[in-house]
């Protein structure tokens, strides 16, 4: 599951991610982040099966947690050219038996690169 974490001026100084991995004995995959002096944000991926306890733990440390459900959206404009297939870091796109390009959207980690690559602008990331 993909989470958006927002750290305020206090929590940004705490090693919340390390604490979570150690305490909960779970692996957290950091997708993207930016940390400033007064606040910070991170996109992380956590174990689906233990999502609620991990989220609860992170929240208990004072970090704002938003679950990201909005994944990549492919519109009717898609011409099934496949340009997105080799670009996506987590293999969301593939050709099916019918030679249509299919998107397994649950896998999407919202990196955004495919949006830029699609020649007919058929891809969009709904804002969170």
């Amino acid at each position: 599951m993909l989470l958006y974490l927002h750290f305020d001026s206090k929590t940004v100084k705490e090693p919340v991610i390390s604490l979570t991995t150690l305490e909960k004995k779970t692996l957290i995959n950091i997708i993207r982040g930016s940390v400033g002096a007064r606040e910070g944000e991170l996109f992380v991926e956590i174990e689906d099966s233990r999502a609620s306890e991990i989220i609860e733990f992170i929240r208990s440390k004072g970090v704002e947690v938003t679950e990201i459900r909005e994944k990549i959206a492919k519109s009717e404009d898609c011409i099934h050219c496949g340009a997105c297939i080799s670009i996506c870091p987590v293999e969301v796109f593939s050709l099916n038996d019918d030679f249509r390009v299919e998107a397994e959207v649950e896998k999407c980690i919202r990196c955004g690169i495919c949006i830029y690559v699609c020649p007919v602008k058929a891809l969009e990331l709904p804002s969170i």
Binding site: H80, A83, I87
Partner: peptide, 19 residues
């Protein structure tokens, strides 16, 4: 969808639409 280059598997994108 995959070819090997220097011993590694590399993903391939067609740019024409078979569909």
């Amino acid at each position: 969808g995959k070819v090997e280059i220097n011993g590694e598997e590399v993903r391939v994108s067609p740019l024409s639409s078979y569909f």
